[in-house]
């Protein structure tokens, strides 16, 4: 049995105040939201802070709102809030479904989307799908606010591109449209997924041809990767796209920096990308998956 070391909890009244606190304490402080990963790392003495700045007490950061074709998700929203949000379920059902399958119910009830993205655990689901949905994030600090694509937030395993004093405050997810086809699938043997694959397609003719595509793979490497070169092969007639799925999968795998680890060898993961690209494609276009 291990216990947490001593620390203080600070309750900022606003994002600006939280940012000031971060600046004041320097690396003695961390932003605290759900704590599902932070507290675990602190218990193992992998991380150590004297101050935790509680993001959840800042008004407005746990709201989900729709605006101009996008859903704005407050960084302190739990996975549970997102999976059960009627707004998300209606406007971007594939993301609601993904959220309903993150870890287990207890992690979903406490863990937040903002914390998940900032902590950047390599075997995490949401970032992979947010990449293909074209999500952006708001970064706020005492110096102001900037909105960046999710790609620009991801830096590596357990690493993000936030500058000192910066706080992720909301995640902006474009709404799904009837001419979009999207799906996320994962392969899981252990507690965390071995592979997660997200796919988004645009069609103007009811699914006969695809005019735009995005695909990303996560968990197989230190951080999720989009595969722009492979995306070109995912546009065109459906027959052509299906025919080229094995080459597309190879390109995704090539770009994903696959690693050998206890989840599997890089060779096996390369194979899984192939299997799950096909399965995810079939799921996205609405067909039953045969295994």
């Amino acid at each position: 049995m291990t216990t947490l070391s001593r620390f203080e909890i600070d309750q900022p009244g606003s994002v600006a105040e939280a940012s000031q606190m971060l600046g004041h304490y320097g690396d003695q402080a961390a932003i605290y939201a759900g704590g599902t990963e932070l507290l675990l790392a602190m218990r193992h003495r992998a991380l150590s802070y004297k101050h935790l700045i509680d993001l959840k007490v800042i008004p407005g950061l746990n709201a989900i709102k729709a605006r101009d074709g996008v859903i704005e998700i407050g960084a302190a929203c739990t996975h549970r809030t997102i999976e059960s949000s009627s707004l998300v379920r209606e406007m971007q059902p594939v993301f609601a479904e993904l959220e309903s399958q993150v870890a287990n119910i207890r992690v979903r009830a406490t863990g937040t989307l903002g914390g998940n993205l900032c902590f950047a655990e390599p075997h995490s689901d949401p970032a992979t799908m947010l990449l293909v949905l074209g999500a952006t994030v708001w970064i706020e600090s005492a110096r102001g606010t900037r909105e960046i694509p999710i790609e620009k937030l991801i830096a590596g395993a357990y690493a993000n591109h936030l500058a000192p004093g910066e706080i992720l405050t909301r995640i902006v997810v474009p709404c799904g449209k009837s001419n979009h086809r999207a799906a996320y699938m994962k392969f899981q043997i252990h507690e965390r997924p071995t592979l997660g694959l997200g796919l988004w397609l645009e069609t103007l003719d009811g699914g006969r041809t695809f005019t735009a595509a995005r695909v990303a793979v996560g968990c197989v490497s230190p951080f999720p990767h989009r595969a722009p070169v492979a995306e070109a092969l995912l546009t065109g007639s459906r027959a052509e796209v299906e025919k080229h799925l094995p080459e597309t999968a190879a390109l995704i795998a090539d770009g994903a920096d696959l690693v050998d680890d206890h989840e599997g060898s890089a060779e096996y993961k390369r194979h899984l990308v192939d299997v799950f690209l096909r399965r995810t494609f079939l799921k996205a276009v609405g067909l039953r998956i045969s295994s």
Partner: peptide, 23 residues
């Protein structure tokens, strides 16, 4: 003590949490 097993589950406002890793 890693939110995997669920033996420390308690309900907070009706929802289950892992009390081992919950302040």
């Amino acid at each position: 003590e890693a939110q995997v097993c669920g033996s420390c589950t308690v309900l907070v406002d009706g929802l289950p949490v892992s009390a081992c890793t919950y302040l």
